[in-house]
């Protein structure tokens, strides 16, 4: 009921779990300082923060919607649009770059049909580039759902992605 006309989710047959979202919000009712915590929890479970949800948080936690909206668009951890089931981060840092990261990016873009910052139509992957994941010795590195995969060739990166549902 919280997500009346969101076509992207309808087409996916995967509606927002409104009850669960309410549960998270209600647990912190009236506590403005819990805002970011609530946003993180909902983002983690729901993979994005629809505007109606932002409005409900604002009301329940007594934070102006303008501020909630600013925070939701300020941090990269929050997404105002639906995100894929898997977060793919391709390292474009110097070390990875010289070891072939651009070719990995090309391969991944071709395979998924999306560019950095985008999510595919099936909501399978969201692609981002990052500047150094802090494990340069493993370069080139691709991180998927928080797990780092190092020393990848373009072919291996394609294989890796194919292993995800």
């Amino acid at each position: 009921m919280s997500n009346p006309e969101c076509a992207c989710h309808e087409s996916k047959g995967e509606p927002l779990d409104a009850a669960r979202i309410d549960q998270i919000i209600t647990a912190h009712r009236g506590d403005p300082s819990a805002l970011i915590q609530v946003m993180l929890e909902i983002q983690a479970e729901n993979r994005w923060l629809p505007r109606e949800v932002l409005a409900r948080m604002a009301e329940a936690l007594q934070v102006p919607l303008a501020r909630v909206q600013h925070i939701a668009t300020f941090y990269k951890a929050f997404s105002p649009v639906p995100k894929g089931r898997h977060d793919v981060h391709i390292c474009m840092g110097t070390a990875c770059h010289v070891r072939g990261a651009p070719r990995i990016l090309d391969t991944v873009e071709e395979l998924t049909g999306i560019a950095p910052g985008e999510t595919d139509m099936e909501l399978k992957f969201s692609l981002e580039t990052v500047n150094c994941l802090g494990c340069c010795a493993l370069g080139p590195v691709v991180e998927i759902d928080g797990k780092a995969h190092g020393h990848l060739s373009p072919a291996q990166s394609a294989e890796l992605l194919q292993g995800y549902e």
């Binding site: 102006p64 919607l65 303008a66 909206q69 668009t73």
Partner: peptide, 9 residues
């Protein structure tokens, strides 16, 4: 009133 805010950064 908070009728206008910033978004993004």
């Amino acid at each position: 009133l908070h009728a206008v805010g910033f978004i993004d950064r």
